[in-house]
């Protein structure tokens, strides 16, 4: 279980508890956090679940696989600290993580 804070583009914060094994994306969609569309449901096929991760947390995340890396590389609003939240499995180590969402996922 990890406490995760999702911050909307307008600054509004949502702190939710996410069970181990779920993805960060599921932590948002199952807890009614707006701002993560996840159209493909977590198949790494659509890039509509992007989040921005602060530097101090980036290193604690599992490395990006090729698919995520290239999807992000070609995503219109992505930045160096972008991740696809459907590719991040939640573990205890992520307790307290704060991520920001883009204005739009499209």
């Amino acid at each position: 279980m990890a406490k995760v804070t999702f911050i909307e583009h307008n600054g509004k914060e949502h702190t939710v508890e996410v069970a181990d094994g779920l993805t960060l994306m599921e932590g948002a969609t199952k807890n009614m956090v707006p701002g993560i569309d996840a159209d493909c449901g977590g198949a790494c096929a659509c890039a509509t679940c992007m989040v921005f991760v602060p530097e101090e947390w980036l290193a604690k995340l599992p490395a990006k696989e090729d698919m995520e890396e290239t999807m992000l590389d070609f995503c219109e609003h992505s930045e160096a600290n972008s991740r696809l939240s459907c590719q991040i499995k939640v573990t205890k180590e992520l307790d307290g993580i704060r991520v920001t969402m883009p204005e739009s996922q499209h």
Binding site: D66, M67, T70, M71, D73, F74, C75
Partner: peptide, 12 residues
């Protein structure tokens, strides 16, 4: 097929 850059760029 296993080509995210082609897919993402083509969408635009």
């Amino acid at each position: 097929v296993n080509r995210a850059p082609e897919f993402m760029m083509a969408r635009q």
